[in-house]
Amino acid sequence: MTLLALSGVSFSYGRGSRVLQDIDLAVEAGSNLGIVGESGSGKTTMLKLLLGLERASSGAVSFRGERLDAANRGFMRGFRRSVQAVFQDPYSSLDPRQRVFDIIAEPLRSLKIETDIAAAVEQALRDVDLPADAARRYPHEFSGGQRQRIAIARAIVANPDLIIADEVVSALDLTTRTRIIDLLRSLSARMTFVVVSHDIALVALLCERLVVLEKGRIVEQGATRDILARPAHPYTRQLLASTPRMPERV
């Protein structure tokens, strides 16, 4: 089933030049989608469109086959409940003056989801391997990796169908990065991920399908295995060639 789709979408800020042009893509339930692009590729704008934070200049963004409509409160509430996000910077993405409990509970409260909030927060903390007493503490008491876990707990607390992850491990150390990737992998069994990153290796680790963005256009999309085995577009080939590798074992 198609969760989110962009069809014929173009976008420009004000009267500026096109940031995105003729974008067609679909996020299918159960199949993680990776969006790879470098600075200036338009991936941040695409993220905002997918999250309903910006409106397309032309074309349509649809959720479960229906067009996103900011005026339709009930529909938007369902959309917000189903589509959550995790961001790059674990420092800027948590309110420093809120306790972890309130941070994680925010979607439940704002979306007026009728559930036992305390139990849901506790379960979310368990899902991201944080101790239950973390709920009483403030973000500054945690390291970068732990903060990213808190942000993931907030994203999953309302049991969404889709999580959009924007460069979620770029700010983390290698060993922490690996643990967060393992966590996202285990969560993939319950929900679908859209992984936005400049790092094609990260996307390849997590996603079955891949979209390569260059200067606001999709230059290549398809199954990750196929693209890695036979990259059709020169830009994709350049990305793969530029990614530094470990030396052969001696």
Partner: peptide, 16 residues
């Protein structure tokens, strides 16, 4: 560290 770095490489193993 080496194992983590190799895991990323392995993800690209289909690449030419």
């Amino acid at each position: 560290l080496v194992a983590a770095a190799r895991a990323f490489d392995a993800a690209l193993e289909f690449a030419p």
